[in-house]
Design a protein around this nucleic acid. Structure first.
Lengths: 232, 232
DNA sequence: TCGATTCATTGATCGAGATCAATGAGAATC
DNA sequence: GATTCTCATTGATCTCGATCAATGAATCGA
């Protein structure tokens, strides 16, 4: 895919149609397309925040603690926008999880340019708030939920984001490895694997190869996820 | 403190000086002051997002999971601005942690009004991004750090935010209880207490009554917090 | 001033999930 | 098509932090 095609996708999804051609060109001038990259860290300058558009593929944002312990802070799928923070007390790295086409901006430059375009600022705000909402839910899961609840919640979230519903079964093709899932849920690969086995034994899911999951009972999965019982 | 005084503090901190009087009045019309409230949940409509300015006191934003398990998502101190989300899979409640004066806005109304004021939108964006950064760091702590690291990191963070440096000692007056700290760190009160005892035994801190902490060795605390070793 | 209540600390024991260790199942390389 | 390599699964054991149970210290109301 060419830079123009990638930028076109980005702009049609995230820039207002009302934007003038001149303004559009200015945003375009800030973007840099990263061609298809196989599973690898995305090399970004650690001293600045970045804004990354996932055109195709999938990525994970990883926070690094000492002793090589990693925490996947978020996964991202096509047509999503991510803010990648500069290095601070902890460093963050964006990795592709499958071959991906990305569009990268310097966050500060982009936000500065957006000062003249309230609709773009509003879009950045909505984007940050969505990430914040997900991150808060994740904090709750990491701080207070059990391993079965975490995996159930993860699968429900993935079903919503990348699930393919067929009849009353939802099919998932998970692009990330068990290690990635473990690093996202604050567990080990072994525990994740055991939880998959339990869900399989209870006929709630079936697994197809390494990455396929057929969700047979989404309601049971939601019930396991430790969500609050819906108030009336 | 009167509504006008509270709004004045808010606007001088968060609204641009360049704002027209008319625009200022429109923002003011959206605000509602909550007078000094003793430690209690802040009653907000659960069906809408809110924007809350902490004028004095301290608050905690709590996420509720089933079975009464609570996770403190963030603490807030004077002059800070919080986005309180509406109920979704999980419900969130803002609590005062000490007597507080708050200024409350409906988030959607505020953001809509800000469409005409890019500087205000930019402020909301910065605010959301700061919360997101903190939340990501918290996810790392909850997912991958040990109890000693979590308490050390918590104390370092509090030292930065509400610490009173005197000579080479930083004094902290923690407004929140051990339960709040435990709910923030994903631990139990007992574990938090034991970690305080350990830090005391190692002469890194002294505790003064229930809420006072004298940090004698901030560097040791930072070393314990599991931050990445600074790269060159 | 004295219980009563709440909150922090300390000790004893337990258990969910980590760690250690082996095996199994694909996919990539030649 | 055998040979690695990598990744997922399963089992055995261990450990950190949870849970259960007292005790101590402050604050509050009468």
């Amino acid at each position: 895919m060419t830079f123009n095609q990638i930028f076109e996708r980005f702009s049609s999804r995230y820039l207002p149609a009302s934007l003038s051609d001149a303004a559009m060109m200015r945003f375009r001038a800030l973007g840099r397309a990263l061609p298809v990259i196989r599973e690898a860290p995305v090399s970004l300058d650690e001293n600045a925040d970045h804004l990354v558009y996932v055109c195709s593929g999938a990525t994970k944002l990883v926070a690094h603690a000492s002793a090589g312990r990693d925490q996947v802070v978020a996964f991202h799928f096509p047509d999503e926008l991510i803010a990648v923070p500069a290095r601070a007390e902890h460093s963050y790295t964006l990795y592709t999880v499958s071959p991906s086409e990305l569009l990268v901006f310097d966050y500060a430059d982009f936000a500065d340019l957006a000062r003249g375009e309230p609709a773009v600022l509003r879009m950045l705000l909505d984007c940050a708030r969505k990430s914040l909402g997900r991150c808060r839910d994740k904090s709750l899961a990491l701080g207070r939920k059990t391993a079965p609840e975490r995996l159930a919640g993860f699968l429900v979230g993935m079903a919503v984001r990348i699930g393919a519903p067929q009849d009353d079964i939802t099919f998932l093709d998970l692009p990330m490895s068990r290690r990635d899932i473990a690093d996202s849920l604050g567990l080990t690969i072994e525990t994740v694997s055991r939880q998959f086995t339990l869900l399989r034994e209870q006929k709630i899911i079936e697994t197809v190869g390494k990455s396929g999951v057929r969700i047979r009972d989404l309601l049971a999965l939601e019930a396991r996820a430790g969500y609050l019982i819906e108030a009336a």
